[in-house]
Write a protein that binds this DNA or RNA. Structure first.
Lengths: 221, 221
DNA sequence: ACCTGAACACCGTTCAAGT
DNA sequence: ACCTGAACACCGTTCAAGT
């Protein structure tokens, strides 16, 4: 049976779940698809292009139509969709973070986010900057979640913690503890709400007027 | 002359500026140091450890004593120090982002940031979460800055922009334009101030009382 | 203690040749 | 059009042997 581009991408994502990004090799992926490694180059000019396509596939659905509502809720939904998409496959966040050329799903997700922030009252340029800031947060957080999920196998939690915890403030120790203890979803929500409030503050600063928020007392400066 | 661990790290950072992260190879780095590739394994157990050491060296100075002052200014200083440190070497942000085991400079920088946010009034756990969020922002932004600095050589700005700009909202086009046009330092400052205001909002929510800010009217909820 | 030289087990990528 | 088989030019890493 002949291989199609889409088959390669799907197979690569399946392979990712089984072997991880570090195990993903053109030869081994070929073998998993019952094909020689070199045959994959009929479908992608190089490995980088394959990874870009995988990243874009990962983000499918993130830019689906948003329910009407407050921009805060829409940002919340968008960010949670993206986190969920990245966590859906092993090393998903790392794959997306390594992307060079954004695919169409990445582009329309960015587009949607920018428009949500614009509808909140931000100028397009600033909406773009903060959209990227949001994506950095989601990517960074999910990368850390997935990295942490890998650790306990090879490293013994004891010596590791000792090394990270010497000559450091008690606040740091508590913070590190909570990083392991606290539900990642809760940590994520906390930073996300901080981001949203940060957006709101720039909003009040830039154009108090077209916002649909029930809040602004317009106490400028 | 014998090679010391510190010499290898310094040489590797010099090599990074000349050839970039993708060109950094144990063999080629060895040659640059007048040594066989395998000799580097007397100083580092593997390439990953070398990269971790480079990342930590990159962050040297970021956690230097902060001037007394408002926590907002201290966060500002810390973030700008980190950005400057990452931009000081080619692919610096990518090197740090790829770090697995944090070095001592990374740890004390985190410690300092956590304590700044704690002194602002945040509980240690939340201070830790937002510190990581800040680092994700700085890393993401600087990675993008350095990636953009590489592009113009191989890609012709025209077809690239056309591909990124079809079937997309006019806001997106403006946002993309401004990403190329606007001074990165200004974009960085904008997102940073949004982050700082986001922190302030969580502060008001968590413990209005020990803050040294001249601001809180304590309008809770 | 540090380094050489050579090897081992891989990589990504290319390409004639097959079907 | 898609795939095989084999090669090319590399990798990271190891290790006896030298100094």
């Amino acid at each position: 049976m002949l291989l199609r581009r889409a088959n390669v991408i799907d197979g690569a994502l399946k392979f990712l779940d089984a072997e991880g990004l570090d195990g993903l090799t053109m030869r081994k992926l070929g073998a998993a698809l019952n094909v020689q490694g070199g045959a994959l180059y009929r479908h992608f000019p190089n490995k980088e292009a394959l990874l870009d396509a995988m990243a874009d596939k990962l983000l499918e659905g993130v830019a689906d139509p948003l329910p009407d509502g407050h921009w805060r809720d829409q940002v919340h939904i968008l960010a949670n969709r993206m986190r969920k998409a990245l966590l859906a496959h092993r090393d998903g966040a790392r794959v997306v973070a390594g992307t060079y050329a954004p695919g169409s799903n990445t582009i329309i997700a960015t587009d949607v986010a920018i428009n949500v922030l614009c509808s909140a009252g931000l100028p397009p340029a600033q909406a773009g900057w903060l959209t990227f800031a949001l994506f950095y947060y989601v990517l960074g957080h999910t990368m850390e979640e997935q990295a942490q999920a890998q650790l306990p196998a090879d490293d013994d939690w004891q010596s590791r913690n000792a090394r990270l915890t010497t000559g450091v403030s008690p606040q740091y120790v508590v913070a590190l503890q909570s990083l392991i203890t606290t539900d990642p979803a809760q940590r994520f929500a906390y930073g996300l709400s901080a981001f949203i409030e940060g957006v709101a503050s720039q909003l009040a600063l830039a154009g108090p007027g077209e916002s649909a928020a029930p809040k602004p007392p317009t106490g400028d400066r």
